[in-house]
Design a binder for these strands. Structure first.
Length: 437
DNA sequence: TCTGGGGTCCTAGGACCC
DNA sequence: TCTGGGGTCCTAGGACCC
């Protein structure tokens, strides 16, 4: 069979990935950075979250704290830049827009990665590497960004192909595993460590290695049923995907988020409740903005605070609390007001806080599989009932002793002296601080 | 002394991704 | 001195139901 015609029925995926994305974005607007060793730093200039090839060649790992790099930076003239996420988001949109010209089936996987579904487009793009080079050329020309393209009959294989395209200069940025002769295919897989496979992280690598599975080829040769028995359904799926049986579909419609997190490490340690509350208010309002953008409502906010775990000499403390909203809402003022009960309850004086954040949960009730205390639909009955239960309890035991922390169908409440998260209470004002400990 | 089985709902925690 | 900020999915196990 000729390899340059793709049968209509055959699934084919492409993964397009921008090289060193944040660094490449910075270079687009400052050509002096080209060919220079460059890193982009995280919030507070804490860690290197993007590295140019020159920096990678120096052995700098992703996420290395900047203070550990300063000496190396001085030696090699590494340029360090603070991150500019507005810029990166804008550049990302431009790339995705260009990619939509190549296929109607697009899954934006992350800020710098995109899957294209090419099934049925064989007559339009008979040779995958051809479309790959066209994509590279056009994105380079229109945005200056360098990309690599990988093709495979499953998403996992397309990811792997992209990895090969990046590492092996001979591929010129485009690798097609779908038409590669079998011996060559196996040969490549045998050179790649199992940890490079999408979905195999540090822990799984260790366990796979212990079982004698060290290369991608070895993983591919392992019977999926055995993988399932030993590692679970996720690894089984990976096994099939590596064998060219597609288990992961293209997700063209981005589903609304099931939780929205807003959190930050502080540049300086914070010890006052006032400052903590201000941060929590600002986190909540930015999370609420994202909530409204996806047309969701939220019925519980988790607030968390913690000290700096890296300072082992300090007294450590971390705590969190889930604050319910009886009526689900996306109104910033309501959400902030509710969220502010969190720090009030869990704050302990005498600690130096390093990080805080909020998590909006119970959002988009149709998509949430676990039921929260107050759901948007039918909130009336249930929360009214709960309120009355709580009132009775409060009368009976006194307001000092009762908080509702767990609710299910046939067990409407439980008393809890010392709460664990999530702590649900319908009467924030009156639950004494001690119970939030 | 004997001490079910199948199902649901919920949570905590672990692992992974970029 | 200085150590990111988002997310997802899966599993085990407890509580509860009939």
């Amino acid at each position: 069979m000729s390899t340059d015609i793709i049968p209509i029925s055959r699934p084919l995926f492409a993964l397009v990935d921008v090289n060193n994305f944040y660094v490449s974005c910075e270079r687009a607007f400052n050509p002096d950075l080209v060919n220079q060793p460059v890193v982009v730093l995280s919030n507070n200039d804490g860690c290197a979250v993007a590295r140019s090839n020159e920096v990678k060649a120096l052995g700098v790992k992703m996420g290395t704290p900047w203070f550990q790099l300063k000496e190396l930076a001085k030696q090699h003239g590494i340029v360090a830049l603070s991150s500019n996420y507005t810029l990166y988001g804008d550049m990302s949109n431009r790339v995705m827009t260009i990619l939509r010209d190549f296929s109607p089936h697009v899954e934006v996987y992350s800020i710098d990665e995109c899957f294209l579904g090419l099934q049925g487009l064989g007559s339009l793009w008979p040779i995958p590497t051809g479309i790959g080079q066209t994509i590279r050329h056009r994105i380079r020309q229109w945005t200056t960004l360098p990309v690599c393209v990988g093709f495979g009959t499953t998403k996992t294989l397309a990811k792997l192909a992209n990895h090969i395209a990046k590492k092996q200069p001979s591929f010129n940025g485009v690798c097609d595993l779908s038409t590669m002769p079998h011996e060559q295919f196996e040969a490549w897989l045998s050179t790649i460590e199992v940890g490079e496979v999408w979905g195999v992280g540090r822990q799984l690598s260790l366990h796979l290695n212990a079982a004698g599975i060290k290369t991608v080829q070895a993983l591919r040769a392992t019977p999926p049923a055995w993988l399932r028995a030993k590692f679970g359904v996720v690894m089984e799926r990976l096994g099939y995907e590596l064998r060219g049986i597609s288990c992961l579909a293209l997700e063209e419609l981005s589903a609304p988020k099931k939780q929205i997190i807003s959190s930050r490490s502080f540049g300086q340690l914070i010890d006052s409740l006032t400052e903590l509350s201000e941060s929590v208010a600002s986190f909540t309002s930015s999370a609420a903005e994202r909530l409204r953008r996806q047309n969701s409502v939220c019925n519980a906010i988790q607030v968390f605070i913690q000290t700096n775990p890296f300072r082992e000499q300090d007294k450590q403390y971390s705590n969190c609390m889930t604050v319910p909203l009886p009526n689900a809402s996306s109104d910033t003022r309501l959400l902030v007001r509710a969220a502010l009960f969190g720090p009030k309850r869990i704050y302990r004086p005498g600690y130096a806080y390093k990080k805080a954040g909020v998590i909006l949960t119970g959002i988009d009730s149709a998509a949430v599989h676990q039921e929260s205390l107050f759901t948007l639909h039918g909130a009336g009955n249930r929360s009214a009932k709960l309120m009355s239960v709580l009132d009775q309890l409060n009368q009976r035991y006194g307001r000092e002793t009762v908080a509702i922390f767990s609710v299910s169908k046939n067990k409407p409440w439980m008393m809890q002296q010392k709460n664990r998260t999530p702590c649900y209470t319908t009467n924030w004002q009156d639950v004494p601080i001690a119970y939030a400990h």
